[in-house]
Nucleic acid binder design. Structure first.
Length: 476
RNA sequence: GGCCCCAUCGUCUAAUUGGCUAGGACACCACGCUUUCAAUGUGGCAAUUCGGGUUCGAUUCCCGAUGGGGCUACCA
């Protein structure tokens, strides 16, 4: 049977870093086995639903390069792929469990449940539904439904033990006594995650459930549901959590927008870098290789080599990966990408892109590094122009001679610029700093910048000479 | 509180299913290159949570302690 996996986010916000990694691992498992990667939207919580978030979820996934074989937008043989459009299916399945006695109606108010929980906590008992409504007979149930109209359907957890194998954690065995009678259908008629995901995974013929570790404690409930329906459960895989620097599971509430993939997208991180970084967050190949494209990951990835312990999201490493991918990038591609971050300009930015390639770690950094290129005038002061260990007259002389020599250059190429100024330095017995420092400041207005020859070249002859001239007039 | 999971440098991790001086990468530090800042090159710092077993030999297997995390909703 062909491998089928799914990524099933809730449209309650944006794609989360941890979610992106889960999606990636699912994708890799599917593609490596030549199977299918399915996308399903789990929108059963009406209160937390955020309008428009499903589209952003799809966009982010696509941006990463993780395309699906079946999903809400493209359909497939097992649709619909949006849970709110499958309510009838869940109702029918809940009815089946009701009929076989594996589930029961519950009419308890939220107030009663809350006080029950409070009492249990106070007396040191585990919090668990007390099966108050289990003893209701058919007549009573009928009446209650008529009276109240509202009810939930609960799974009746049988006695005994529940056992399953997780492909990362191994055998897990749980005493059913510790499992609560899970609500399957809420009073608004929507299913809870537990029912919906089991029913869907079965109907969509999912063979391997790969999800976050937070689901490990509820997996016994899911196994019990499979048993109640008489279905064969999938292979279970629970991925370790992605942690913040406090070693706590990354979450919107605690970590804010840093958990969103779109945050990194906006800052100019590349999908290839994110993919590579995420892949290595909890997984490692058999050798010391670090750089992987998505296609290479498909070949190399193996769930058996996934880590058991949670991994801290380390921004430094992502930063490094991004720089690596920027350096490797085709220059015209990079220039095109940078257009989104460069201000509007009539100048050709390709030379600028070229000199920035080895200096960028994120695309957004051009806004600070390359400001000099886009402004008409840079801000200069006399003091800044004069290098340490030098003097006003020397600086005026150096700039004046530079201007004169440079203006005579016919080929404005980096090697020619180097020759020109190197000769000047030798001829007049300058130190390199005495000449190059004031030129840098004249061109960029800054004490830190890319290589002077690079800047001269990127700016072009005309703009460079105008700036040197202006610096000169400031000094004299 | 109850249930479950986990434990190697600061961080991500490697270590033929027991056999090195515990390896790599990021970060950090130093040096080289250099007009500045980066990039780059070379080198350095840095870890098996603790205690018992099993064994000729434990990072590795077993038990316990400790620590961390997750779950404990009509949220996913």
């Amino acid at each position: 049977m062909s491998i089928r996996v799914r990524f099933a986010p809730s449209p309650t916000g944006e794609l989360h870093i941890g979610g992106a990694r889960t999606a990636l691992y699912n994708y890799l498992v599917a593609k490596k086995a030549g199977g299918q990667f399915i996308l399903r939207l789990e929108d059963t919580d009406q209160e937390r639903y955020i309008k428009g978030s499903e589209q952003r979820l799809l966009d982010d996934l696509l941006w990463l390069g993780l395309s699906w074989d079946e999903g809400p937008d493209i359909g497939g043989y097992h649709g619909p792929y949006i849970q709110s459009q499958r309510l009838k299916i869940y109702q029918e399945h809940a009815q089946k469990l009701l009929a076989s006695g594996e589930a029961y109606y519950c009419f308890c108010s939220e107030d009663r449940l809350q006080t029950l929980r409070k009492e249990q906590t106070a007396s040191g008992q585990p919090t668990k539904y007390d099966r108050h409504c289990l003893s209701l007979n058919k007549e009573q149930i009928k009446n209650k439904i008529k009276e109240a109209g509202k009810y939930v359907i609960r799974l009746k957890i049988p006695d005994g033990f529940t056992q399953f194998t997780d492909s990362i954690h191994g055998q897990i065995k749980v005493d059913n006594q510790t499992i609560d009678d899970q609500i399957l259908i809420k009073s608004d008629g929507y299913p809870t995650y537990h029912l919906a995901c089991v029913v869907d995974d079965h109907l969509m013929e999912i063979t391997n459930v790969i999800r976050g570790e937070e689901w490990l404690p509820s997996t016994p409930k899911h196994v019990l549901l499979y048993q109640a329906f008489g279905w064969t459960p999938p292979t279970w895989t629970h991925l370790p959590n992605v942690l913040n620097t406090q070693r706590v599971k990354l979450s919107k509430r605690k970590d804010g927008e840093t958990v969103w993939l779109s945050t990194y997208r906006r800052q100019g991180y590349l999908p290839a870098a994110l993919i590579n970084f995420l892949a290595l967050l909890g997984w490692h190949p058999h050798d010391n290789r670090e750089l992987f494209t998505l296609a290479e990951l498909v070949k190399e990835f193996d769930l058996a080599r996934v880590q058991k312990a949670g991994a801290i999201f380390d921004l430094d490493k992502l930063y490094w990966f991004n720089a690596q991918y920027i350096k490797k990038m085709e220059i015209t591609t990079l220039d095109k990408l940078l257009k989104d971050f460069y201000p509007q300009t009539k100048f050709n930015t390709l030379p600028l892109t070229q000199i920035l390639q080895t200096r960028l770690t994120t695309l957004a950094e051009v806004k600070t590094i390359a400001e000099f290129f886009f402004v008409d005038q840079v801000s200069l002061t006399k003091n800044k122009l004069i290098p340490k260990d030098s003097f006003l007259e020397d600086t005026i002389k150096a700039l004046g001679l530079s201007k004169e020599k440079l203006s005579k250059l016919t080929h404005w190429e980096i090697s020619a610029l180097q020759n020109c100024l190197t000769n000047l330095i030798a001829e007049y017995n300058f130190t390199r700093r005495q000449v190059l420092w004031p030129i840098r400041v004249a061109l960029t207005g800054q004490e830190k910048s890319p290589d002077v020859f690079d800047v001269l070249w990127a700016l072009g002859k005309e703009r460079s000479l105008v700036r040197i001239e202006r610096a000169l007039s400031l000094l004299t």
